[in-house]
Design a protein around this nucleic acid. Structure first.
Length: 395
DNA sequence: ATGTGC
């Protein structure tokens, strides 16, 4: 028997910056037992042991490849708000109280969305930290009017894009499986795999419901309504029929190319892209999309590691400067470290990322979206004055 | 990414 080493494939032009560490991680992951294919998308960047911006097809299930934020993804709503009536400063004043538990009827809401209770439900409807956000956007340029019409998007109305995941729930699911089984991956027919997949599936639905509740809370704060136009997961593992064989497709920071249009967000200081994956809907397949494991980039991709941005930027940009962007957008982020970490400079050029996908024949641009107001976080609860669990006296 | 951690 000859053991063939799976080689990693990278979809990216030489023009785009890809860290050596990310490529090393991609190759190492491609060499895991049972791995059939590994693809790095143009937003590829290093993660904790495994790269982000990648898709993997394997015989085994690797929970660590999905990571802790199981079900993280993007939801897009079209609101009833007319763009010309939207005042970002006024809206910003009304967006408060979104970090704590929702004050609505959670039990009822859970039933409506098919969720069973978990120990993490007080976080339902909260955005979280890191690269998560909720952003009010307008259509900037429309390149494919008929695809836009198919999505029923009205250029006169404000959009709301929500990026969040499964918060503490996904973290607990990953920790439990890694504590018991390490990083070796799970045999799909095993009890361990069944247990993980059950918890994983609960987490992806919790994450989707979380995005819904985040949207609802933001819409309520502005006294308006909206309709969801798309919602996709970019962190998950799923069984997939691959030429008659059932294999496991892992997406770690990779948007699906087989679930209709997706938003590829830039940083808060750049446009985002609404794209149409080029896949034949009836066949759910095409040579290019199979080569990319039916996946697309999930964003611009980090250029600077977390914690690096403050040192690089603080000399030339004060926190106040960071609350306005080059495109004229406003930013609500009262966590200073996060304000720097998520600065536009910390990300690669999303235009290049999307151009690489288009050049590879993977998608077409429907429209670009302009950020108007980006909501990250108000004073984090544990950093509120008086909330410190300090043991030291003041003298 | 994370009720983050001594």
């Amino acid at each position: 028997m000859v053991l063939q080493k799976t080689t990693a494939r990278l979809i990216a032009s030489p023009d785009i910056w890809i860290e050596g560490e990310a490529l090393r991680q991609l190759e190492q992951t491609a060499a895991l037992p049972g791995m059939r294919a590994a693809v790095g998308l143009p937003d590829l960047h290093p993660g904790k042991g495994y790269p982000i911006g990648a898709a993997f097809l394997s015989e085994r299930i690797y929970p660590a490849l999905v990571g802790n934020d199981i079900g993280c993804g993007m939801g897009l709503w079209q609101t009833d708000l007319a763009i010309r009536k939207f005042k970002p400063e006024r809206a910003a004043e009304r967006l408060t109280g979104l970090e704590g538990p929702w004050d609505g009827d959670l039990a009822h809401w859970r039933v409506d969305h098919g969720l069973t209770p978990t120990a993490f439900d007080q976080a339902l409807g909260t955005i979280g930290g890191g690269n998560h956000f909720a952003e009010w956007q307008t259509l900037a340029e429309v390149l494919d009017p008929s695809a836009l019409a198919e999505l029923d998007l009205d250029p006169e109305r404000l959009l709301l894009l929500v990026h969040s995941g499964s918060r503490g729930l996904g973290e607990s699911v990953l920790r439990a499986v890694i504590d018991r089984h390490g990083h070796l991956g799970l045999e799909p027919e095993s009890t361990a795999a069944r247990d993980y997949l059950k918890a994983h599936d609960q987490a992806i639905h919790w994450a989707e419901a979380n995005r819904r509740l985040i949207a609802r809370r933001l819409l309520n704060a502005l006294g308006t309504e909206a309709e969801r136009r798309l919602d996709v997961w970019h962190n998950l593992v799923q069984p997939i029929d691959w030429a008659g064989e059932t294999l496991w497709l892992h997406r770690k920071g990779a948007a699906p190319a087989d679930r209709g249009p997706v938003v590829i967000p830039g940083s808060r200081g750049t446009l985002s892209y609404l794209v149409k994956p080029l896949i034949q809907p009836r066949l759910k397949s095409a040579p290019e999309t199979d080569a990319s494991l039916r996946s697309l980039a999930h964003g611009a991709g980090r250029k600077w590691k977390r914690g690096e941005a403050r040192g690089r930027l603080s000399a030339r940009q004060r926190p106040d400067d960071l609350q306005k962007t080059a495109l004229g957008g406003h930013v609500i982020c009262e966590d200073k470290e996060l304000l720097y970490d998520e600065a536009p400079e910390a990300y690669k050029a999303v235009d290049r990322v999307v151009a690489d996908l288009v050049d590879a024949g993977l998608c077409r641009v429907i429209a670009t979206l302009r950020p108007v107001l980006t909501y990250k976080v108000r004073h984090p609860a544990h950093k509120q004055p008086g909330a410190r669990k300090t043991k030291r006296g003041r003298r």
